[in-house]
Design a protein around this nucleic acid. Structure first.
Lengths: 213, 213
DNA sequence: TAGATTGTTAATCGATTAACAATC
DNA sequence: TAGATTGTTAATCGATTAACAATC
């Protein structure tokens, strides 16, 4: 049980390489070098080779990488060689957007059900799905083999929803409520805070303004 | 014109410190140490002091930091001592969610207008706002002093929308379309790709599964 | 003055890049 | 064999942490 220690930036780039390879594959390109991958996604060739080296030897010296083979490996590394059933809790605008979004319904991901606390929302149609009452989450999570829960409710409900998700056997949570949720250590959790992203922009604009003085 | 070089992680943490200070201030706390800030947000005290040191000396040795003063400084550093007018282009579910979201209507940010290409959406009400035709963007951007544009249209429209934004004098773009946009170098741009975030989760779940073998 | 906490320097840690031997 | 490109090692770069002098 050796613990593989991979920088998070490497994983992010694996995701980017993987999409790039998908595009190459669609365009019928069969072989590619680290140099071309680097050019294609905007990193250094050494970085590409180093990133891949965390996971194995996928290329052929003097030749390059087989696109299909490398694509298959990157998908497997990212855990995308299997299906991930998602449940979204919170059928407001954000929940609706994510339910039908391409990112959440591609590359192994599938939004299998949507829940809401509000009885007025229950029964509403979102894409192919009907909004389910929150009380149904434990049962449907079992039935649909939900492994990832997405929280798009407001702050006051978020912790309660997280608790229900954990009790329902969900393994990972993607949380859009801008609060810190408490979950057991074995649950993967990640927060998406768009306000911080906005503030990175305004910070940089401020820097620029200062530099042009 | 000395160029201030600050790690992006530091800026992200400044944003987090700033919110923490807001909470302290609301609770009437007047003084705080780097140790307490560190505890409150989950980083090391040395990190807190080092982060702040990029921007100045805000504390008093032997005493700590004045909450109100430090809050004011963090807000100024992040560029939040001014109002940032936003325009959202794409009045679908995501656009609607962001238009009325608290993160986009607090701490100096204000969604001033929403646009859509689709004539069926134009005139719709979102919160206080009416959806405007895309053609109105240049004029309204001027009139409303829009400095940040948010792109929530589909991939095929995103580049065109970015072009119009740039021509309209927008300084920064937050792009939710999962494609790489070409903009002039003086425009700040940032992509939000939720799929990559999802894949970080599945990668970690895969690691965990491998370790428990 | 004694106790506390900052701001800063030096040490450590980790990630990226450069360089090159291995090898197709 | 000559040319090309990988996989890996060593060098560099940058960020975090530890430690402590400065000072309230």
């Amino acid at each position: 049980m050796k613990t593989l220690r991979v920088p998070e930036a490497t994983v992010t780039r694996m995701s980017i390489y993987s999409r790039f390879l998908e595009r190459l594959d669609r365009n019928g390109i069969t072989t590619i070098s680290s140099n071309e991958i680097a050019d294609g996604v905007g990193v250094s060739p050494a970085q590409v080779r180093k990133d891949l080296a965390y996971f194995g030897e996928f290329g052929t010296r003097g030749v390059g990488y087989n696109v299909q083979t490398l694509l298959k490996y990157t998908l497997r590394i990212l855990g995308l060689d299997q299906t991930w059933q998602l449940a979204i809790v919170g059928a407001g605008n954000l929940g609706q957007a994510l339910t039908t979004s391409r990112g959440f319904n591609a590359r192994g991901f599938h939004v299998a059900c949507v829940f809401d606390h509000d009885t007025r929302r229950v029964g509403q149609r979102i894409g192919q799905l009907l909004v389910q009452p929150l009380g149904q989450l434990p049962e449907l999570a079992q039935k649909e083999n939900i492994r990832i829960g997405v929280i798009t409710v407001n702050n006051s409900m978020a912790q309660e929803v997280a608790n229900i998700m954990v009790q329902s056997g969900v393994q990972a949570i993607l949380n859009f409520a801008p609060i810190t949720l408490r979950v057991p250590a074995n649950i993967e959790i990640r927060n998406v805070d768009l306000s911080i992203t906005l503030e990175l922009l305004t910070f940089n604009l401020g820097l620029k303004a200062a530099q042009s003085l």
